[in-house]
Protein backbone atom coordinates (compact mmCIF):
# COMPACT_ATOMS: atom_id res chain seq x y z
CA UNK A 1 0.00 0.00 0.00
CA UNK A 2 1.32 3.43 -0.98
CA UNK A 3 1.40 6.32 1.43
CA UNK A 4 -0.93 9.11 0.30
CA UNK A 5 0.67 11.63 2.64
CA UNK A 6 3.91 11.42 4.59
CA UNK A 7 5.26 13.85 7.18
CA UNK A 8 8.95 13.48 8.04
CA UNK A 9 9.92 15.46 11.17
CA UNK A 10 7.66 18.32 10.09
CA UNK A 11 7.54 21.49 12.18
CA UNK A 12 5.67 24.71 11.65
CA UNK A 13 6.61 27.51 13.99
CA UNK A 14 5.03 30.97 14.08
CA UNK A 15 6.38 34.19 15.46
CA UNK A 16 10.00 35.17 16.11
CA UNK A 17 12.69 32.48 15.95
CA UNK A 18 13.79 33.41 19.48
CA UNK A 19 10.40 32.57 21.03
CA UNK A 20 8.50 30.56 18.46
CA UNK A 21 4.96 29.31 18.84
CA UNK A 22 5.32 25.67 17.88
CA UNK A 23 2.01 24.99 16.14
CA UNK A 24 3.38 21.76 14.72
CA UNK A 25 6.47 20.33 16.32
CA UNK A 26 8.39 17.42 14.80
CA UNK A 27 5.45 15.43 13.45
CA UNK A 28 5.99 12.07 11.74
CA UNK A 29 2.94 10.74 10.01
CA UNK A 30 1.95 8.31 7.29
CA UNK A 31 -1.53 8.29 5.83
CA UNK A 32 -2.30 5.19 3.79
CA UNK A 33 -3.87 5.54 0.36
CA UNK A 34 -7.62 5.05 0.35
CA UNK A 35 -7.99 5.41 4.09
CA UNK A 36 -10.27 7.63 6.12
CA UNK A 37 -7.83 9.37 8.42
CA UNK A 38 -8.88 11.59 11.29
CA UNK A 39 -6.76 14.24 12.98
CA UNK A 40 -8.21 14.65 16.43
CA UNK A 41 -7.29 17.17 19.08
CA UNK A 42 -8.40 20.20 21.04
CA UNK A 43 -8.24 23.65 19.44
CA UNK A 44 -4.68 24.87 19.12
CA UNK A 45 -3.24 21.35 19.06
CA UNK A 46 -1.86 21.72 15.53
CA UNK A 47 -4.29 19.52 13.63
CA UNK A 48 -5.59 22.27 11.34
CA UNK A 49 -2.05 23.50 10.70
CA UNK A 50 -1.15 19.96 9.63
CA UNK A 51 -4.06 19.99 7.20
CA UNK A 52 -2.93 23.34 5.82
CA UNK A 53 0.58 21.98 5.42
CA UNK A 54 -0.86 19.26 3.18
CA UNK A 55 -2.90 21.73 1.11
CA UNK A 56 0.06 24.11 0.91
CA UNK A 57 -1.40 27.13 2.71
CA UNK A 58 1.33 26.74 5.31
CA UNK A 59 4.96 26.03 4.60
CA UNK A 60 6.87 23.81 7.04
CA UNK A 61 9.57 25.54 9.07
CA UNK A 62 11.50 22.29 8.82
CA UNK A 63 10.91 18.73 7.68
CA UNK A 64 9.59 17.13 4.51
CA UNK A 65 6.07 16.52 3.31
CA UNK A 66 5.41 14.00 0.55
CA UNK A 67 2.17 13.48 -1.31
CA UNK A 68 2.14 10.13 -3.11
CA UNK A 69 5.90 9.95 -2.74
CA UNK A 70 6.61 13.40 -4.18
CA UNK A 71 8.23 16.09 -2.08
CA UNK A 72 5.84 19.06 -2.19
CA UNK A 73 8.11 21.54 -0.40
CA UNK A 74 8.25 23.69 -3.51
CA UNK A 75 4.77 23.12 -4.94
CA UNK A 76 2.15 25.88 -4.50
CA UNK A 77 -1.43 24.93 -3.49
CA UNK A 78 -2.92 25.26 -6.97
CA UNK A 79 -0.60 22.58 -8.32
CA UNK A 80 -1.28 20.04 -5.57
CA UNK A 81 -3.99 17.63 -6.61
CA UNK A 82 -5.44 17.85 -3.14
CA UNK A 83 -8.71 19.60 -2.40
CA UNK A 84 -10.19 21.02 0.76
CA UNK A 85 -13.64 21.32 2.26
CA UNK A 86 -13.25 24.47 4.32
CA UNK A 87 -14.67 24.91 7.76
CA UNK A 88 -16.71 27.94 6.66
CA UNK A 89 -17.26 26.23 3.27
CA UNK A 90 -15.81 29.31 1.49
CA UNK A 91 -18.37 29.14 -1.32
CA UNK A 92 -18.09 32.03 -3.76
CA UNK A 93 -21.13 34.23 -3.00
CA UNK A 94 -21.25 35.84 -6.44
CA UNK A 95 -21.50 32.52 -8.32
CA UNK A 96 -24.41 30.13 -8.41
CA UNK A 97 -24.05 26.58 -7.13
CA UNK A 98 -23.24 25.17 -10.57
CA UNK A 99 -20.41 27.66 -11.14
CA UNK A 100 -19.11 27.07 -7.64
CA UNK A 101 -18.93 23.33 -8.23
CA UNK A 102 -17.49 23.79 -11.72
CA UNK A 103 -14.89 26.32 -10.55
CA UNK A 104 -12.04 23.83 -10.41
CA UNK A 105 -12.75 22.83 -14.01
CA UNK A 106 -13.22 26.43 -15.15
CA UNK A 107 -9.75 27.46 -14.00
CA UNK A 108 -8.35 24.46 -15.86
CA UNK A 109 -9.95 25.76 -19.06
CA UNK A 110 -12.63 23.07 -19.43
CA UNK A 111 -15.41 24.31 -21.73
CA UNK A 112 -18.69 25.38 -20.23
CA UNK A 113 -20.80 22.52 -21.52
CA UNK A 114 -18.48 19.84 -20.11
CA UNK A 115 -18.07 21.51 -16.76
CA UNK A 116 -21.80 22.12 -16.37
CA UNK A 117 -22.40 18.43 -17.02
CA UNK A 118 -19.70 17.45 -14.53
CA UNK A 119 -21.05 19.90 -11.96
CA UNK A 120 -24.49 18.34 -12.36
CA UNK A 121 -22.96 14.87 -11.79
CA UNK A 122 -21.23 16.04 -8.64
CA UNK A 123 -24.42 17.66 -7.38
CA UNK A 124 -26.21 14.35 -7.94
CA UNK A 125 -23.46 12.65 -5.96
CA UNK A 126 -24.19 14.85 -2.95
CA UNK A 127 -27.96 14.66 -3.58
CA UNK A 128 -28.43 18.25 -4.67
CA UNK A 129 -29.82 17.73 -8.17
CA UNK A 130 -31.59 20.79 -9.48
CA UNK A 131 -29.92 23.24 -7.10
CA UNK A 132 -27.45 24.48 -9.75
CA UNK A 133 -29.10 27.86 -10.33
CA UNK A 134 -29.27 28.89 -6.69
CA UNK A 135 -26.86 31.20 -4.98
CA UNK A 136 -25.05 29.95 -1.86
CA UNK A 137 -26.98 32.47 0.24
CA UNK A 138 -30.21 30.67 -0.66
CA UNK A 139 -29.04 27.35 0.78
CA UNK A 140 -29.20 25.91 4.29
CA UNK A 141 -26.03 25.07 6.21
CA UNK A 142 -26.26 21.40 5.35
CA UNK A 143 -26.79 22.14 1.67
CA UNK A 144 -23.82 24.51 1.58
CA UNK A 145 -21.73 21.81 3.13
CA UNK A 146 -22.71 19.44 0.33
CA UNK A 147 -21.90 22.06 -2.31
CA UNK A 148 -18.47 22.55 -0.72
CA UNK A 149 -17.98 18.79 -0.87
CA UNK A 150 -19.08 18.58 -4.51
CA UNK A 151 -16.78 21.48 -5.40
CA UNK A 152 -13.81 19.83 -3.72
CA UNK A 153 -14.47 16.51 -5.45
CA UNK A 154 -14.94 17.85 -8.98
CA UNK A 155 -11.20 17.81 -9.67
CA UNK A 156 -10.97 14.15 -8.63
CA UNK A 157 -8.33 14.91 -6.00
CA UNK A 158 -5.84 12.32 -4.81
CA UNK A 159 -6.53 13.41 -1.24
CA UNK A 160 -9.59 15.20 0.11
CA UNK A 161 -9.00 17.37 3.16
CA UNK A 162 -11.91 18.19 5.44
CA UNK A 163 -11.45 20.91 8.04
CA UNK A 164 -14.09 20.40 10.74
CA UNK A 165 -16.69 20.17 7.98
CA UNK A 166 -19.55 19.17 10.24
CA UNK A 167 -18.83 21.67 12.99
CA UNK A 168 -21.54 24.14 11.97
CA UNK A 169 -24.31 21.57 11.57
CA UNK A 170 -26.86 20.57 14.20
CA UNK A 171 -26.64 17.13 15.79
CA UNK A 172 -29.15 15.26 13.63
CA UNK A 173 -27.72 16.60 10.39
CA UNK A 174 -24.20 15.95 11.60
CA UNK A 175 -24.94 12.28 12.21
CA UNK A 176 -26.55 11.93 8.79
CA UNK A 177 -23.57 13.62 7.13
CA UNK A 178 -21.14 11.37 9.01
CA UNK A 179 -22.78 8.31 7.47
CA UNK A 180 -22.87 9.94 4.06
CA UNK A 181 -19.23 11.00 4.15
CA UNK A 182 -18.20 7.52 5.17
CA UNK A 183 -20.26 5.94 2.35
CA UNK A 184 -18.93 8.46 -0.16
CA UNK A 185 -15.36 7.73 0.84
CA UNK A 186 -15.65 3.99 0.44
CA UNK A 187 -17.41 4.46 -2.89
CA UNK A 188 -14.87 6.87 -4.36
CA UNK A 189 -11.82 5.26 -2.79
CA UNK A 190 -10.22 8.70 -2.33
CA UNK A 191 -8.04 9.25 0.75
CA UNK A 192 -9.96 11.45 3.19
CA UNK A 193 -8.13 13.42 5.85
CA UNK A 194 -10.55 14.73 8.38
CA UNK A 195 -9.83 17.29 11.11
CA UNK A 196 -12.10 17.30 14.13
CA UNK A 197 -12.15 18.10 17.81
CA UNK A 198 -15.09 15.74 18.33
CA UNK A 199 -13.69 12.42 19.53
CA UNK A 200 -17.00 10.61 18.91
CA UNK A 201 -16.90 11.71 15.28
CA UNK A 202 -13.29 10.61 14.88
CA UNK A 203 -13.90 7.22 16.51
CA UNK A 204 -16.99 6.45 14.47
CA UNK A 205 -15.72 7.56 11.05
CA UNK A 206 -11.98 7.02 10.82
CA UNK A 207 -10.05 3.94 9.74
CA UNK A 208 -7.16 5.35 11.69
CA UNK A 209 -6.62 8.50 13.66
CA UNK A 210 -3.91 10.68 15.09
CA UNK A 211 -4.48 12.41 18.42
CA UNK A 212 -2.78 15.81 18.54
CA UNK A 213 -1.65 17.63 21.64
CA UNK A 214 0.41 20.83 21.73
CA UNK A 215 1.75 20.45 18.21
CA UNK A 216 2.76 16.82 18.54
CA UNK A 217 1.07 13.54 17.85
CA UNK A 218 0.24 11.86 21.13
CA UNK A 219 -0.89 8.61 19.51
CA UNK A 220 -1.67 7.10 16.11
CA UNK A 221 -3.73 3.99 15.62
CA UNK A 222 -7.10 2.56 14.75
CA UNK A 223 -9.98 3.97 16.77
CA UNK A 224 -10.27 0.70 18.70
CA UNK A 225 -6.57 0.71 19.59
CA UNK A 226 -6.58 4.32 20.67
CA UNK A 227 -9.70 3.90 22.74
CA UNK A 228 -8.71 0.62 24.38
CA UNK A 229 -5.02 1.35 24.86
CA UNK A 230 -4.40 5.08 25.21
CA UNK A 231 -0.68 5.70 25.25
CA UNK A 232 -0.72 8.82 27.41
CA UNK A 233 -2.83 10.46 30.08
CA UNK A 234 -3.87 13.13 27.60
CA UNK A 235 -5.19 10.57 25.10
CA UNK A 236 -7.03 8.64 27.79
CA UNK A 237 -8.75 11.78 28.98
CA UNK A 238 -9.41 13.38 25.59
CA UNK A 239 -10.68 10.28 23.82
CA UNK A 240 -13.72 9.12 25.76
CA UNK A 241 -12.96 10.94 29.06
CA UNK A 242 -11.38 7.94 30.77
CA UNK A 243 -10.47 7.77 34.42
CA UNK A 244 -6.81 8.65 34.51
CA UNK A 245 -5.37 7.07 37.64
CA UNK A 246 -2.17 8.27 39.28
CA UNK A 247 0.38 5.54 40.16
CA UNK A 248 -0.68 5.21 43.83
CA UNK A 249 -4.31 4.80 42.89
CA UNK A 250 -3.44 2.29 40.16
CA UNK A 251 -1.70 0.26 42.84
CA UNK A 252 -4.71 0.54 45.13
CA UNK A 253 -6.77 -0.74 42.19
CA UNK A 254 -4.51 -3.78 41.97
CA UNK A 255 -2.17 -2.59 39.22
CA UNK A 256 1.53 -1.65 39.09
CA UNK A 257 2.91 1.66 40.39
CA UNK A 258 2.17 3.47 37.08
CA UNK A 259 -0.34 5.81 35.47
CA UNK A 260 -3.33 3.86 34.17
CA UNK A 261 -6.60 4.40 32.34
CA UNK A 262 -9.87 2.82 33.36
CA UNK A 263 -12.95 3.43 31.20
CA UNK A 264 -16.04 4.56 33.15
CA UNK A 265 -18.18 1.92 31.39
CA UNK A 266 -15.84 -0.78 32.70
CA UNK A 267 -16.69 0.04 36.30
CA UNK A 268 -19.63 -1.73 37.93
CA UNK A 269 -21.42 -0.02 40.78
CA UNK A 270 -22.19 -2.49 43.61
CA UNK A 271 -23.30 -2.46 47.21
CA UNK A 272 -20.73 -0.97 49.53
CA UNK A 273 -20.23 -3.92 51.87
CA UNK A 274 -17.63 -6.60 51.31
CA UNK A 275 -15.78 -4.93 48.38
CA UNK A 276 -12.22 -3.71 48.24
CA UNK A 277 -13.11 -0.38 46.61
CA UNK A 278 -15.79 1.75 48.21
CA UNK A 279 -16.39 5.47 47.89
CA UNK A 280 -18.89 8.28 48.24
CA UNK A 281 -21.08 9.45 45.38
CA UNK A 282 -20.30 13.15 44.87
CA UNK A 283 -22.21 13.85 41.69
CA UNK A 284 -24.65 12.34 39.22
CA UNK A 285 -25.00 13.40 35.59
CA UNK A 286 -28.03 12.02 33.77
CA UNK A 287 -27.13 11.07 30.18
CA UNK A 288 -30.35 9.48 28.96
CA UNK A 289 -28.86 6.11 28.07
CA UNK A 290 -27.46 5.92 31.60
CA UNK A 291 -25.97 8.05 34.33
CA UNK A 292 -22.43 9.07 35.02
CA UNK A 293 -21.55 8.87 38.68
CA UNK A 294 -18.65 10.69 40.27
CA UNK A 295 -17.30 8.67 43.15
CA UNK A 296 -14.72 10.00 45.61
CA UNK A 297 -12.39 7.15 46.38
CA UNK A 298 -9.25 7.56 48.53
CA UNK A 299 -9.13 11.21 47.55
CA UNK A 300 -9.45 10.50 43.84
CA UNK A 301 -12.47 11.33 41.77
CA UNK A 302 -13.52 8.32 39.64
CA UNK A 303 -16.28 8.32 37.05
CA UNK A 304 -18.45 5.26 36.55
CA UNK A 305 -21.11 4.73 33.92
CA UNK A 306 -24.32 3.35 35.32
CA UNK A 307 -26.53 1.79 32.61
CA UNK A 308 -30.17 2.88 32.49
CA UNK A 309 -32.54 0.68 34.46
CA UNK A 310 -30.24 0.23 37.42
CA UNK A 311 -31.12 1.98 40.67
CA UNK A 312 -29.33 5.32 40.90
CA UNK A 313 -27.79 5.98 44.32
CA UNK A 314 -28.38 9.27 46.14
CA UNK A 315 -25.54 11.81 46.30
CA UNK A 316 -23.56 11.14 49.46
CA UNK A 317 -24.33 7.41 49.43
CA UNK A 318 -21.48 4.97 49.79
CA UNK A 319 -21.12 2.57 46.89
CA UNK A 320 -18.72 -0.17 45.92
CA UNK A 321 -16.87 -0.36 42.61
CA UNK A 322 -15.83 -3.52 40.80
CA UNK A 323 -14.09 -4.13 37.47
CA UNK A 324 -12.38 -6.75 35.39
CA UNK A 325 -8.60 -6.42 36.04
CA UNK A 326 -7.98 -6.69 32.28
CA UNK A 327 -9.82 -3.37 31.83
CA UNK A 328 -7.13 -1.50 33.75
CA UNK A 329 -4.83 -0.20 31.03
CA UNK A 330 -1.35 0.81 32.17
CA UNK A 331 0.05 3.68 30.09
CA UNK A 332 3.60 3.71 28.82
CA UNK A 333 3.85 7.31 27.60
CA UNK A 334 4.10 10.47 29.62
CA UNK A 335 1.99 13.60 29.42
Amino acid sequence: MTAAVEFLRVSRHFGPASAPVKAVDGVDLTIAEGSFFAMLGPSGSGKTTCLRLISGFEKPTSGTIRIFGQDVGDIPPNRRNVNTVFQDYALFPHMNVRDNVGYGLMVKGVDRRTRDARAEEMLALVKLEGYGDRKPAQLSGGQRQRVALARALVNEPKVLLLDEPLGALDLKLREAMQDELKALQSRLGITFVFVTHDQGEALSMADSLAVFNEGRIAQIGTPAEVYARPRTRFVADFVGSSNVLPPEVTRAFGGPMKWASLRPEMLRVTAADGVALAGTVTGIRYLGAGSRLSVALNGTEVAALLPAGQPVPEPGATVGLAFDPAALHVMEGEG
Partner: peptide, 27 residues
Protein backbone atom coordinates in the same frame (compact mmCIF):
# COMPACT_ATOMS: atom_id res chain seq x y z
CA UNK B 1 -13.60 38.87 1.41
CA UNK B 2 -12.56 36.07 3.76
CA UNK B 3 -9.08 34.60 3.30
CA UNK B 4 -10.60 31.15 3.03
CA UNK B 5 -12.27 32.22 -0.22
CA UNK B 6 -8.92 33.05 -1.78
CA UNK B 7 -7.53 29.80 -0.43
CA UNK B 8 -10.48 27.88 -1.84
CA UNK B 9 -9.73 29.35 -5.24
CA UNK B 10 -6.05 28.37 -5.08
CA UNK B 11 -7.00 25.00 -3.65
CA UNK B 12 -9.18 24.30 -6.68
CA UNK B 13 -6.26 25.01 -8.99
CA UNK B 14 -6.55 28.71 -9.80
CA UNK B 15 -3.43 30.77 -10.43
CA UNK B 16 -3.08 34.11 -8.66
CA UNK B 17 -4.25 35.91 -11.79
CA UNK B 18 -7.31 33.68 -12.09
CA UNK B 19 -8.16 34.20 -8.42
CA UNK B 20 -7.88 37.94 -8.92
CA UNK B 21 -10.12 37.93 -12.00
CA UNK B 22 -12.76 35.48 -10.84
CA UNK B 23 -12.93 35.98 -7.08
CA UNK B 24 -11.22 39.12 -5.76
CA UNK B 25 -12.31 41.56 -8.45
CA UNK B 26 -16.00 40.55 -8.56
CA UNK B 27 -16.21 40.64 -4.76
Amino acid sequence: VPTSMLEASADLGASRAQTFRTVILPL
